[in-house]
Design a protein around this nucleic acid. Structure first.
Lengths: 185, 185
DNA sequence: GTCTATAAAGAGATAGAC
DNA sequence: GTCTATCTCTTTATAGAC
């Protein structure tokens, strides 16, 4: 049985994520990952025998677990609109009000191993399908709900692209502020 | 052994752009740039004595010139709505219907020189302010026009993020299809 | 588990022949 | 203008001490 992820591990993953997030997969050198975590390169290899690819996949696993928490209100609040608003708040905070890059954007560039790219798509799918689900519960057809969820994802991710270019999180925050209307009409 | 003749400048920039676009700045190795252009590494240094940073800036200059052409209908068509639709068509084609990554997203990650990041923001600003201009001509207040243009940029860029993750350009194309409504109400 | 040391390959960049 | 050859530094990865 696999060892459950410890808090210690999560802290490590968060520091690795910080590097991958800002530099992408190929830009994230072992040296930078080691410095960010406070471990030496050889120690990282002890934790991740398959090297950088395994570190990136572990980071994607961590992000997926974090998203499960961010998405919880949207999934469980009896009122869809309230749930969407609460999740939007959490997501906005998670991305530093729109000033942090998203690992789903920066990590899966060409050069990243296929497994990393697949994991990134998986996490994005978790997010998008949770939005589509709440849109359906709000009364939209499955097709409309999925399209609205994709649009919401795109708007938010693009807001983060804008944020990185101009150091301004306003477009990202507008996207999240309009999430209820976008998903529920 | 005689080599095939060197490519023209714009052709050269396009081949460099292809590498930067898909891999980001740090992921774009001199070897990959040389292979993509058909030149040897030393020949690239003859054209760009300052190396990779200068190549990336030249690519941004090329992209800016390309955008001037993409944006021309939106700027000059007497009917704002027709102009926006024509520019949207051109932009959609430029990005392969939503399946190509955008250099404005992938190039300015951490690790890219400050000059490259500045150039990327400059090109994005050209695009966004052209959209804000047409929105104003369509009757919106300067503040609304700017915000709508930023939102349109974000939606489109995020559509490309989705396209890269899922190999599906539909969200990007939806964003462009809604450009008239987004900018002109 | 973490470290130092080091190997092996790849990176950016330069010199000089043609 | 393009090439081959080379330099130097960085990067990934491994070996082995503690």
């Amino acid at each position: 049985m696999a060892r459950p992820p410890s808090v210690q591990d999560d802290e490590l993953y968060d520091r690795l994520a910080e590097v991958f997030r800002t530099t992408g997969y190929e830009g994230a050198s072992l040296g930078a990952l080691a410095e960010s975590t406070g471990l030496k390169r050889a120690s990282l290899y002890h934790r991740f025998p398959d090297g950088k690819a395994q570190m990136a996949e572990a980071v994607m696993g961590r992000v997926e677990r974090l998203f499960q928490d961010l998405l919880e209100p949207m999934r469980t609040d009896p009122d869809p609109r309230t749930g969407v608003m609460r999740t939007a708040e959490r997501i906005s905070a998670f991305y530093g009000g729109g000033l942090l890059s998203c690992v789903l954007d920066t990590l899966p560039l060409s050069g990243a191993p296929e497994g990393v790219r697949r994991r990134a798509a998986q996490v994005a799918e978790v997010w998008i399908s949770a939005m589509a689900d709440v849109a359906r519960r709000g009364g939209r057809s499955p097709e409309d709900a999925r399209a609205a969820a994709e649009d919401a994802f795109a708007w938010a991710e693009g807001g983060l692209v804008y944020g990185r270019l101009f150091d301004d999180g306003a477009p990202f925050r507008r996207a999240l502020a309009r999430l209820p209307e976008l998903l529920l009409g």
